[in-house]
């Protein structure tokens, strides 16, 4: 029988989906990924997760508990950073061991630790991790190595496809291409252009973002997400800061906001923040202060948590869109 590896569909899954799935499939394991967040998972999350964690981390707990009895292994990496100085969120590192400590009845958790910034891990460490995990599933080192290479290849391809190039960005700004869902153009002749800015695990999880992407495209809004922005554009923006924004995932958020505030090429920016997310609290303030200094492109900041209601949420988005319409 194939060994079953469970990966909760939350947090870093949305970033490294391709890599992890390919790796375990190549190793000959059965990969079980929890379904898209449902009401049940959310209820589990709210009930069992530590009450002070951020909403997305809570959802992670929900996903993990949902998978608990269906898998032989959990794959929850302790991921510190993949950059020389910039780091991820501390929660990502602690998560595996917190779950292990809070729920002793969990199946074995595979938790490789990788942090380039603080622990100076490099390719050798990666190789070690690959083999350590691999030997749990197969004794063929060549197969493990192959799985490792394929996994990174898949991740590279996925990212290549995800991140658009600067030319594509230009084309999107000039309304030549669509990057996401086609907007519904029944009520307006020209789609509005909005940048939807948030963490990947909010943008792609339709329960936690309260179905905002569908909602927007129904209203005839053409969006670009912060996840898709060209990396070079973001790095260029980050160079302009007089400090180093050392949270890697906030860089893409702040970078996107700064880029569009500066260039005024689109109609508005919509930022979704997760309640009690540490880095978000900083970036929210930075973004709002920057937008006050460059007020041409309107910026709407919404904070989501487990109590946000869809109605209140869509009312504010509607008001924002109306405001943009009136400006144009």
């Amino acid at each position: 029988m194939k060994k079953r590896v469970g990966i909760p569909r939350a947090l870093l899954y949305y970033k490294f989906e391709a890599m992890w799935k390919t790796f375990f499939e190549e190793l000959g394991a059965e990969v079980i990924i929890s379904p898209e967040t449902t009401k049940t998972i959310k209820d589990l999350a709210v009930r069992y997760a530590p009450d002070e964690d951020c909403y997305s981390t809570k959802l992670y707990f929900g996903h993990a508990i949902y998978l608990k009895d269906k898998v032989d292994y959990f794959f929850i990496p302790r991921f510190g950073s993949d950059h020389e100085v910039n780091v991820g969120c501390p929660k990502f590192i602690g998560l595996a061991q917190v779950l292990d400590s809070l729920f002793p009845d969990f199946p074995e958790i595979i938790m490789p630790y990788y942090s380039q910034a603080k622990a100076n891990h490099g390719k050798r460490r990666l190789l070690r991790i690959i083999f350590e995990i691999g030997f749990k599933f197969t004794y063929n080192p060549l197969k493990i190595l192959k799985a490792g290479f394929r996994a990174f290849e898949a991740q590279r391809k996925y990212e290549e496809q995800l991140h658009i190039s600067e030319q594509q960005l230009e084309k999107w700004i000039n309304s030549q291409i669509f990057l996401n869902e086609k907007p519904n153009l029944e009520k307006r002749n020209k789609p509005l252009k909005l940048a939807l800015v948030s963490h990947p695990y909010v943008l792609n999880d339709s329960l936690s973002n309260l179905d905002i992407r569908e909602n927007l495209s129904q209203k005839g809004v053409d969006i670009i997400t912060s996840q898709q922005m060209p990396r070079s554009t973001i790095e260029d923006q980050m160079e302009k800061l007089d400090f180093n924004m050392y949270f890697s995932y906030e860089r893409e958020i702040l970078g996107t906001i700064m880029y569009f505030l500066e260039n005024n090429t689109i109609d508005g920016i919509l930022q979704l923040a997760v309640f009690s997310c540490g880095p978000d609290s900083i970036v929210l303030e930075l973004a709002s202060r920057y937008s006050r200094r460059q007020p041409e492109t309107p910026l709407l900041q919404l904070v989501i948590d487990e109590l946000s209601s869809e109605v209140g949420f869509s009312t504010r988005i509607e008001a924002f869109i109306d405001m943009i319409d009136r400006r144009n």
């Binding site: 510190g80 501390p90 007089d242 400090f243």
Partner: peptide, 11 residues
């Protein structure tokens, strides 16, 4: 640079 947001207080 650190894991905590303390390093971003000043900006």
């Amino acid at each position: 640079n650190m894991y905590c947001r303390f390093g971003l207080y000043w900006p």
